[in-house]
């Protein structure tokens, strides 16, 4: 028996806004603990991990572990048809994922399950010297400030500030955010803004957002739901100076 019911489909929708812009296909794994997926884009620049705990769902029936391979673009088209006050139900029938939204009207979509073309490695664990929290809206606005001058951004964290800096052909920009965390080391790394914007498409997911950084290390952006009921995290490879 496999049936998941979520009274707030926006968690799913906002996760897949980002996931579908990064990867073409994903394997969604569901077992008695919850739902999770790991995926990496074809160029191996961005890794994404989604975890939704069993207790986040209003109904969670999953008698045996199941793997659902889906085309993210197709699933996103369906999720876009949900309204925030709809109740979402996921079931499986034969070779399809059945997605139902029920509000004023009831809509049922059958999304064909696919064969995956490649395997996704397990989530890497990286030790970071620096970790801060930042409201995701603040991060988004800062990136919007930076992107008017350049297509890459330097993240620089010291004991007081997160600074985002860019040097453009015609203009330079710098945004400073007083992070208020205990930071004992400095960290600096450069990233492509295009990739950061893909991750920020999930902005509505988050209650709390963490940035982990080290010198020329990947950026880890973690969006966490209240009571750790869910987590969406991204790992973005840096650009480095030759």
């Amino acid at each position: 028996m496999f049936k998941l019911i979520l009274s707030d489909p926006s968690i799913f929708k906002t996760s897949f806004e980002a996931i579908s812009s990064i990867v073409d296909e994903v394997q969604i794994e569901v077992d008695s603990d919850g739902l999770r997926l790991n995926a990496i884009d074809r160029s191996h620049i961005t890794y994404v991990h989604l975890e939704l705990k069993e207790r986040l769902f209003d109904v969670f029936q999953c008698d045996e572990p199941i793997k659902l391979n889906v085309d993210t673009e197709e699933l996103m088209k369906v999720l876009k048809r949900s309204k925030s006050d709809d109740v979402m139900e996921l079931t499986v029938d034969g070779g399809s994922l059945i997605v139902t939204f029920e509000g004023a009207i009831k809509k049922t979509f059958k999304v064909k399950l696919i064969d995956l073309e490649y395997e996704t490695p397990e989530s890497p664990s990286i030790e970071y010297p620096v970790k801060i929290t930042i409201p995701i809206k603040t991060l988004k606005e800062s990136i919007q400030d930076i992107e008017i001058v350049a297509d890459r951004v330097e993240f620089n964290i010291d004991q007081d500030f997160l600074k985002l800096k860019a040097v453009g052909e015609f203009s330079d920009a710098e945004v400073e955010y007083l992070h208020g965390e205990k930071v004992t080391e400095d960290a600096r790394a450069i990233f492509a803004i295009e990739n950061i914007k893909e991750m920020l498409k999930a902005e509505k997911f988050a209650d709390t957002t963490y940035i982990s950084l080290g010198d020329d290390m990947p950026l880890t952006l973690t969006l966490e739901l209240l009571n750790e009921e869910g987590e969406l995290s991204f790992l973005l490879a840096p650009r480095i100076e030759e």
């Binding site: 890497p124 492509a192 650009r239 030759e242």
Partner: peptide, 11 residues
């Protein structure tokens, strides 16, 4: 000069 790295070295 800058270049884009990949995540391969972290797996």
């Amino acid at each position: 000069k800058q270049r884009q790295t990949t995540l391969d070295m972290f797996f």
